[in-house]
Each structure stands twice: as C-alpha cells, then as structure tokens.
Design a protein around this nucleic acid. Structure first.
Length: 828
DNA sequence: GCAAGGTC
C-alpha cells in the first residue's frame, strides 16, 4: 500500500481526486479522513502535528530561574494525538511513502516531522518527497512522476527557528512576568515577532506624543471660465524656484489674500496636460487581500476567517500565500467563462471576454512556490444561501480582483493650470478618467475626478471667491491594522499565516486597545524594558539575522547547532544585564499596569481612581487609597470598559467606553453620570403599591447611567420597567387606556422612537422574547452563568446570539471560544 | 500558564 501525506485534509482530498481520477473512497480513522483507491492512500495532517517544549521539570515558573531555560533541553511531542496515531497505523501498512506537504520551508519541516513518525514504526519503507506550488492536474501529475527526497537541511533551518523562538520567548516572558508579579492569566509576553510589531506601534505613539503642531495658511481662489468656477490654490516659489511646500507666515498669507481679493482677473501663464496610464493591480497575496478587505470594512482577522471558509467550501483558492504571480496553467478564458450569465458577476466577465484585451494577467514582485495567488476557483456560491452577505462581499472582492488582473489599464488625463494675478500665482490640478479600464470590473478604488476646464495660455479668467484658512500641521497617524500587516511584511517579520494573529495577540495581552490600535502604558513599559536590556527582541534585526542563519543552514554552510548555540550565548549575555535590574524593571511594569487602569484623581482623597473588577466579575471604579478611602463609582453592567483619552472638564477624569460588540457605547465620565442620577418626572400610580401605599412610577437615572421607570417607594417597592440607555425621553400628553400611563417618545438620532406606554412596551418585549424562543438557557450548552456573561456582552436573546459574530463575541466574553459560539448558533 | 509556525 502506498501512503501519501499532505499538510492538510483539503489538499489530501484534491490530490486523491487528481491521482485517482475522482474514484477515491473516503473513510475515517480516529476522526481523520483517509482517501483510498487502487492500492493507494492519502491522508492530510493539520500543519504541525508535533511541537517543541521544555521537559516537565521546567514547567513551574516560580521554581525555575528564567535563565535556566537558555540551556534547557528541548523535546518534541505529538500535539495532534489522533493524527499521529492514524499516521502510525497507516505507515506500518505502507510499502512506499510520499511526503506531499506544502512547497515552502515550514512545509519541509512538517514533512520531516511526518517522516520521523513513519520511521519510528517502519524502518525500511522508502520515503519520497514531491513538490508542487498549486494543486492542479498538471503540476501534481508531473510532481508525482518524478519524486525527490526530503531536504533535511531546509527542515533543520525551520527547527532552528522553533528552538530560538521558544528559548528567547519563554525565558524573557517568564523574566518580565516574574519581575512584576504578573503570573497566571495576565503574564507579560515578549517574542521575536510580537515585540517588534509592538515597537512599531509604540514608536509611532511616541512620535505623536512628541509632535509639536505648526500653524500654516491655505489660500484658495475660484477661477471662472464661461461662468463655471473651479478652485485654484495660491503658491509661491522659494529661493530655488521650487513651489514652496506651505505658506508658513501669516503676513505673507494675508498679503496674498488682499491682493487676490482686490484683483478681478488672472492670466493663465501655463497649461500642462499629460495622460497617465493606471495599470491594474497585481494578483492577491494574503497581505494585499487583507488590505483590500479592510478598505471595505473588514478587520484583518475577520477577512482571513471568511477567506478560510470560502476556501474550505471550494469557492476560492488557498488564502495563505506570498505569491503574486499566477501559475501558467491558469486559463483566463476558462475561468471567466464560469461566471458568464451570473446575475452579479456575469456582465464584467462577459465584457472581459468580448473586449479587445489579451487577458494577460498582471504580475506582482513576489513569485514564490508556496501556493498560487488568491483567486476564485470558478465554483460560485449562492448569495444568501451558501454564503451570507459578508461572505459574499469578500467573495465578490476576490472575483473582481481576478477580473482586474486580466483587465485593461485605465487612462487618466491630468491638467495643471497656473495663472497669475497681480504677481500672485495660482495653481489648479485637474484629473479626468478618460478610459475606465479595469475600474469597470473592480470598483473598489477611488476614481473621483477633479474638474479643471480646458484653458489656453494668455487667457483671462475672472476671480470669484477668495478664501484664507488657518491650519495646523497634523501628527503622524496611528497605524491601522492592514497598514501594520503590510509593514510587518516589508520588514520581514511574521508570515502570511501568522501576521493577523499577532495583532490579535497584542490585543489579548492588553498591549493595544481600540482600532486603529493604540498602545497601553504596559506596552510602552515592555518596549522600554526590552530596548534597555534585550534590544534584539524588539528589533526586526533579529528576524533578519535569523533568516540569514536559516539560509546558511539550508545551503549547508552552517548547522542547526552552530546557529542555536550562538543565539543561546547572546541570550545569556542579555540575562547578565538583566540580573541586577530585576526590581527596577518590575517596578516600572507594575506602575504602568496601574496607569492603564487610572481614570484620574479621587474627589474624596486625591489618590488615583482605578477601574477595578469585583469578585463577581463586574467592573467598577474604586480608589487606590482603599481601604483608607472607600470612594467608589458604578460602571454600566454591559461590556468591558475602555479608558478613553478624552477627560471630563469638571472632574479631570477620563471618559469610559463600554466595549460590547454591536452594543458598544461611550459611557462618559463616571462621576458626571453618577451626579446625573436621580428621579425624573412622575408618570402615574405604581401598579403594585399605588392603591395600598400611594407609590408612584417615575423615570429614574441610576448612578451607572442606566434608566428605568421605577416606583418612588424603592427599595420598599421594587417594581420597575426598562428604558433605553440613550436618547432624550419625552413624556407626551397621550395616555394609555389600559394602564393610565403617558406614552413615551425617545429622541435619539433622526427618527424618534415611539416607545409608548412603558408597561405595554415591556409586555411586547417579553412577548417577542417568548416567540423567538427567547431564553438563552434553552440552548444546549448554555448555563445560567454563561447567560449572565452573554447578557453583559449585549447578547440578550437568541436573535442577538444568531446575529453575533463568533470571533468578536469570543474576544469580549471570557471563557467563551469561537467554536462554542458556533455550536450554540447551530443549536439555536 | 511561556514563542512562532502550521491548520480548523
């Protein structure tokens, strides 16, 4: 029996299809798919099925000095037991084994891991390696016709990376965590990829903090041709006869303003027209795909998650690739043909097929062997059936990007007009899209035009409105997620499969908040500490050096031991420096952790007010002077608090935003909110105790900002009805016949919401809940505690749960995984 | 309970 081993199940299935002529049978062994036909079997791994770690005696952080990890031995153990077990069974029965993992360095290592598992149980069997960069009939057939051997040097290069990453990462992570007493869930991590990425964000933040804005002026005048005005901007030439960048002096700006305001015409002194070819974009690699998806509103994580689903379902090719050059055997006509007649995607495909274009695709700079660029397979999902709207939008983006790469360039006409009025110069830059080219099939780029009419040199133009604006130079902008991923790629840190996960890791570790990400004080302190004592680990140089070393191992110029020994020596030297500064580093980290929770001064004692968590998991504001000072403020019960940069003028406290998925809202200054608390207008008699004790219903605002209709005899009477958190509540003159309460209208945004009688409103709400099956508890796998956590995150009904994005929910609710959410959604 | 790299 011949055994073929691939990197993933999906590849195993497709290779089995190709080699068997679609006659392979699928069976399951230990929950692993095995494809079998005519004396052959094909099985897919799941990436790495073994992992590196220290022996168990190193596992207690407190018992082991971090520096001991530098020279500790490293073991390889199975991490996917079922797959390893299956592989062993199949390998025993094999008389020939072919490793068909991905064609890149990590694939070679994964292949070598499979090789070792096979060898353990079968010493004799011949083991080959085949390499192909896309799973197509041609490539696969020819790879299998001429099998090669495993490249053990290349695999060793990958192993060196594993060892160096583990040793540096684990030793330094433990050191920082121990020095600051941050053990358990809130440990402080560093690593070869995450730390330089964090430094990018921190460095940018330092620039922003150090930025000193400068004032400058912008002066615009309307020039008029045939009653049509167009905008021109004042400029002047500097000593070198170049256009000055900006007008920095107020007097110069005002002088020009006065001249232009009193001039009634300007003479055209130059007209410069040129056409520019706007070439279509290159095929999608992972990074460019993430960038394009982010431009239409998807986070990096969400874009990748959708792409993975579309890939697994067979609609697009493998989404983790560095390649930007399509394989030769990808036939444009054939692929475009599969879209002909489609209601949404058909017209563009038909235009491309019928056009004069030669359908030769664009190429990017990166040509690699890993996988083809991301493109549609030709299998089209049903919108609203096979895929939901978000998935469709991502799918359409991938299809249209493919269209763009085989479409014609666009042609722009640029027109620069310079005119002069009383010695003052004005310029206008126009642009017009003459040939839309690929923009017709790829409508994601901005194609807005700027109107400047055709004028001739010497022509007189009337001057219309003149405007002078005072402006300030702006600090550099924070990196957005996709810009960060692009920069990581430029610097060579991380891989196509991990860069987006690295950003998620920084969020999870409390290093960055918000979007675009902003570093926490903790992040600043970690980068500081690393810069002072372990500069390598926050520098992209470490990766650059590692890449060079890995190349040396791969070509046989160095050995794994040479490289890892040298790296261990460097880390040893780092610890030499760190030893004496343990307390100092720990202190700084601890102070920064506190600063991340700080809202401002306590109104009672002047110490710091901090966001804290109660024993029951709810958030509140408490004084750092506790127990001497017992001042506290409540926070809303929905979501996780994020401290904003904005502060309140009255109390000098930072405002708070509550992160709760779709229900995220800005709470504001918690002290203001508490002060606003109180009883509003009385609506009528309390249905519970009105007759007996004279209780009345009133609109109340609680200290945590939530509002309700409650009895004035609270806490003796606990009758209450919910009200929305936001919007002004108007009490109208209309009264409900049944309950004799006024109808309420909520003004929030454009459309006023007629809430009506609060009792009727609450009844309707309950009825809707009951109808939708309501109670979250009714879903299998959700207990009372989970319901509480979900409610806090804004998930109050089954409908909410069904609409929720599993990823963002998993990230906001502790102890809930994406998989669990998906299971609930299926169950619901 | 540490990293980064695969994959789901």
């Amino acid at each position: 029996m011949e055994l073929i081993i691939t990197e993933k199940d999906n590849a195993a299935r497709r290779i089995a299809d190709i080699l068997s002529g679609e006659s392979a049978d699928a069976t399951r062994e230990n929950g692993v798919n095995v494809y079998e036909w005519g004396g052959k079997r094909c099985v897919g791994l799941s990436g790495h099925v073994v992992g590196v770690d220290f022996p168990p005696e190193y596992s207690d952080w407190r018992d082991v000095e971090p520096v001991e990890l530098v020279d500790a031995s490293i073991e390889k153990t199975p991490t996917k037991e079922n797959i390893v077990a299956t592989l062993r069974i199949l390998a025993r029965q094999g008389d020939r084994v072919t490793i068909a993992t991905d064609y890149d360095r990590e694939g070679e290592l994964i292949g070598k891991e499979a090789y070792e598992i096979v060898r353990e149980v079968n010493e004799e069997v011949p083991i080959d390696r085949v390499r192909f960069s896309s799973i197509t009939e041609n490539e696969v057939q020819s790879a299998f016709a001429e099998p090669d051997e495993i490249d053990f040097d290349l695999a060793a290069a990958g192993e060196a990376r594993q060892i160096i990453d583990l040793v540096w990462g684990a030793a330094l992570t433990r050191f920082l965590s121990l020095s600051s007493g941050q053990l358990g869930n809130d440990f402080i991590s560093v690593g070869r990829v995450q730390s330089p990425t964090l430094k990018l964000i921190v460095d940018r933040e330092r620039e922003i903090e150090a930025f000193d804005p400068e004032t400058y002026w912008e002066l615009f005048a309307d020039l008029i041709k045939d009653d049509d005005p167009f905008e021109a901007q004042y400029f002047y030439l500097d000593e070198d006869d170049n256009e000055a960048e900006r007008v920095w002096e107020e007097s110069a700006a005002e002088g020009a303003y006065e001249t232009l305001s009193s001039a009634d015409s300007a003479t055209v002194t130059s007209v410069n027209a040129r056409t520019r070819t706007d070439t279509p974009p290159a095929p999608f690699n992972t990074t460019q795909f993430i960038r394009a998806a982010s431009a239409i509103g998807f986070s990096a994580k969400r874009a990748m998650s959708i792409a993975e689903d579309l890939y697994t379902a067979g609609y697009i090719t493998y989404p983790r690739t560095d390649n930007t050059v399509y394989p030769d055997d990808l036939e444009a006509e054939e692929l475009l043909d599969s879209f002909v007649g489609h209601p949404v995607l058909g017209e563009s495909a038909e235009d491309l097929l019928e056009g004069d274009g030669d359908l030769v695709p664009t190429e990017g700079d990166e040509e690699t062997t890993d996988h083809p660029p991301i493109h549609p397979t030709g299998e089209i999902p049903a919108r609203g059936g096979d895929v939901d709207e978000d998935e469709w939008r991502v799918y359409e983006l991938v299809v249209r990007r493919y269209y763009a790469t085989v479409a014609e360039p666009a042609i722009w006409e640029h027109l620069k007009v310079v005119a002069e009025a009383d010695g003052r110069q004005l310029k206008a830059n126009g642009k017009r899209l003459v040939e839309a080219g690929y923009h017709d099939v790829y409508p994601y780029f901005n194609t807005s035009e700027n109107y400047v009419p055709a004028v001739e040199e010497g022509e007189e133009l009337a001057i219309g409105d003149v405007e002078l604006e005072e402006k300030e130079t702006q600090p550099p902008r924070r990196y957005g997620q996709s810009r960060l991923i692009e920069t990581m790629e430029d610097l060579g840190i991380g891989t196509k499969s991990t860069r987006h996960n690295t950003l998620e890791k920084l969020y999870d570790r409390g290093y960055i908040e918000n979007d675009p990400p902003r570093p926490t004080q903790l992040a600043m302190a970690v980068v500081d500490a690393a810069e002072n004592y372990a500069d390598r680990v926050v520098s992209e140089e470490m990766t650059a050096q590692l890449e060079a070393d890995m190349d040396a191992i791969a070509t046989g110029e160095a050995t794994l031991e040479d490289v890892t020994d040298e790296s261990r020596e460097m880390l040893e030297a780092v610890f030499e420096q760190l030893r004496a500064s343990r307390d100092e580093v720990g202190d700084h980290l601890r102070k920064s952790l506190k600063a991340d929770k700080r809202l401002g001064p306590c109104p009672d004692c002047g110490e710091d007010l901090l966001v804290r968590r109660s024993r029951y998991g709810s958030y509140f504001v408490g004084c750092d002077g506790y127990p001497d000072c017992e001042f506290t403020l409540p926070l809303p019960s929905t979501g996780k608090p994020l401290i904003l940069e904005e502060t309140c003028d009255d109390h000098d406290l930072h405002e708070v935003k509550m992160l709760a998925g779709r229900q995220t809202f800005v709470h504001g200054c918690p002290l203001c909110k508490a002060e606003e608390a109180g009883e509003g207008p009385v609506l009528g008699a309390c249905p519970d105790c009105g007759e007996e004790h004279g209780g009345e219903l009133a609109i109340k605002t609680l200290q945590n900002g939530s509002r309700l209709v409650g009895c004035t005899r609270y806490p003796d009477c606990e009758y209450s009805l919910p009200l929305p958190r936001r919007g002004d509540i108007e009490v109208t003159d209309e009264r409900c016949d049944e309950h004799d309460l006024p109808e309420l209208v909520v003004h929030n945004g454009d459309e006023p919401w007629e809430l009506g009688c609060p009792i009727c409103n609450y009844r309707e709400f309950q009825a809707r809940e009951a109808e939708s099956g309501s109670a979250l508890e009714s879903i299998e796998g959700i207990g009372a505690k989970t319901v509480e956590k979900l409610t806090a995150a804004g998930i109050e009904s089954i409908d909410d749960l069904l609409e929720a994005d599993p990823e963002s929910l998993a990230s906001t609710v502790e102890g809930v995984s994406e998989d669990r959410v998906r299971t609930w959604q299926t169950a619901a």
